[in-house]
Design a protein around this nucleic acid. Structure first.
Lengths: 339, 339
DNA sequence: CCTCTCCATGCAAACGTGTGCATTATCAGT
DNA sequence: ACTGATAATGCACACGTTTGCATGGAGAGG
């Protein structure tokens, strides 16, 4: 059923029906109501393709999301982030196409595809980095987009909207918590590869110590994949070190849980002998004991901010105010490190 | 950039360009190559809306997914199911719009919306049940769809394609494993509400016992929300019962993990004193000890089958063979119940 | 009663593709 | 050289909307 058929039923021209459905002020309330009622009755919906061709609007938002690897923090943390995003977008009456930066089979950029095919009205970028090519396409196309969660690495584009958490502050809070709990010999477990997210956490972690007059340096930082295994294996393989430390900042909860499980197996008291602070506040923390003290990633805040901003950009024709926010994370004191 | 502009650059009519891009046999290889090269050079992509209007094809697949509740099995199991689906669809060069059956804000059917607005070429349904209204729309529209994971409840439509796991068999395997491990007094923890999925597991669980001449009945079945808490609390609140049972079939891994954690706290030896078998085989099983013996949901198989089938239906113009499969799950013997 | 406004509706073009049909070019067979 | 077949390309319309403009009708003011 098309708008013309509906118009025939209503005894109106299809343009009048179109305007009615789009709540145009040109149409009298009376006919507007009549059209809406008929549309309801016949279960009529406007064809999205035709609409999109005319209006250049698709009613869908593209979400570029990293590939989620099982067994790492990704599934737990990014999975919940993705759900939050989906629900927020749904609430705003948009559909979402969630995809990864590059199609694994063709090796082609999904960002480019979504933009050039005009499949989406805007993009939410949840990615660590962005090719030069993709940056160019974003810039040239002028499509609205907001970067969230990861620090925006887009280079030259200064008017980009982004919102991400303050990882320095998170690292600082974690170390501070350990210090306040009485720890004096800290180590941290983090991800290698110079990832901004983790480097910042380490910087904050060091800063909290030096600020208090403690010596702190790279010899306290250990690198591995931020999953359960690295945490568990690290403890098992560094048992001789455990006498000389009293606090561990594991820069991902998944990691911290592995650490704690290993400590438990070695009959080392978590919190009393060695305090542990994690990062992320993932749901499954709930299942492990002692309950993990951790840094809560303010995901509700930045997904909310990013979605609303993107939709504002899509809806308003003029340039909107640029938002570039860095959100403070919170310390959640539970059982693995108590002040 | 439109196809006409590209045609002008190529010195051709836009129809020739169109045919070239769609690899029509009408066009000589020479010009075809030339056009493809130009398209590459100018980063040209066909406009999806215009294309969709003409061809009635959108290149995107709709996935109707239940709302994922945190802290229950949903996040773990359905989350990984969703990822598997996304990747399979991506491999086939389709985009996916993942959404829930009903928009929580408007209360309107998303199935209807996606179909009537012609936003998708086909649907993957991962839902327990389907309104009469949605059933009608699926039937009338003739849109290709495949139901997966949940038993198809669509009522009258007998030619529906579906694929779901054999829950009876899963329940049977779980109980059989407990019995083979020497258990004679079993209970099961399951979800209330007469959900087919769980009822079948209970039926299989009972059948495995009666087949071996054991008396088994509803007094062995306990109901609660299949999360960690129900498992944990159930054990804590039924300590007096624990002497008289030696095997527990928890019908969701999340649930089984709660049970095991409680048993550990009560210093009851898992496997030796009370054996535990779960259901799902979720990723986080890996983090808990003793390692959980469980039923593996054959998700890789049925997502693969469902996706390929749906795309076959979308691509072929004629009626395709109907598939209605029930997939056998596997028993994974780990540590919480060993034969 | 006539003209001028204003309000509501109709008309027709346009968006970017795909495709049936017409047209032109090429080539083989006589 | 002419005809006919075949291959390659161009032309024009259609898909279902939205929207600028034209049109018609009602009411107000003179």
């Amino acid at each position: 059923m098309t708008i013309k058929e509906l118009a025939k039923i209503a005894g109106l021209n299809h343009s009048t029906v179109s305007r009615s459905l789009n709540d145009s002020p040109l149409i009298s309330d009376e006919t507007k109501q009549r059209v809406l009622k008929l549309a309801e009755e016949y279960n009529f919906e406007l064809n999205a393709s035709a609409r999109g061709m005319r209006t250049k609007k698709t009613g869908t938002i593209g979400v570029i999301f990293p590939v989620i690897r099982d067994r790492y923090r990704d599934m737990q943390y990014l999975g919940s982030l993705m759900n939050t995003l989906r629900y927020t977008i749904e609430e705003e009456q948009y559909d979402s196409i969630i995809t990864m930066p590059v199609n694994p089979k063709t090796g082609k950029s999904n960002i480019r595809k979504l933009i050039q095919q005009h499949k989406v009205d805007g993009l939410l970028l949840v990615i660590k980095e962005l090719d030069k090519e993709d940056q160019d396409i974003l810039g040239e196309s002028g499509i609205p987009f907001v970067s969230l969660h990861f620090k925006w690495q887009g280079g030259y584009q200064e008017d980009t909207n982004y919102v991400y958490p303050d990882n320095f502050r998170g690292g600082y809070l974690a170390a501070e918590c350990l210090l306040k709990a009485g720890c004096r010999n800290l180590i941290t477990l983090t991800e290698p590869g110079g990832l901004y997210e983790f480097e910042e956490r380490s910087r904050g972690y060091l800063a909290a110590q030096t600020e208090r007059g403690l010596t702190a340096g790279s010899e306290q930082i250990f690198y591995g994949e931020t999953g359960f295994d690295f945490g568990y294996n690290f403890i098992m393989e560094h048992q001789s070190m455990l006498n000389s430390i009293d606090g561990i900042f594991a820069q991902a909860d998944m990691n911290a849980i592995g650490v704690i499980e290993a400590l438990k197996e070695l009959d080392i008291r978590v919190s009393e002998d060695i305090a542990v602070v994690g990062y992320d506040d993932i749901d499954i923390d709930y299942f492990f004991k002692p309950r993990l003290t951790t840094i809560h990633q303010p995901r509700e805040q930045y997904t909310e901010i990013a979605c609303r901003k993107l939709i504002e950009m899509i809806d308003s024709k003029e340039q909107t105010e640029i938002i570039q926010k860095v959100i403070e994370p919170d310390l959640l004191i539970r059982e693995s490190c108590v002040i």
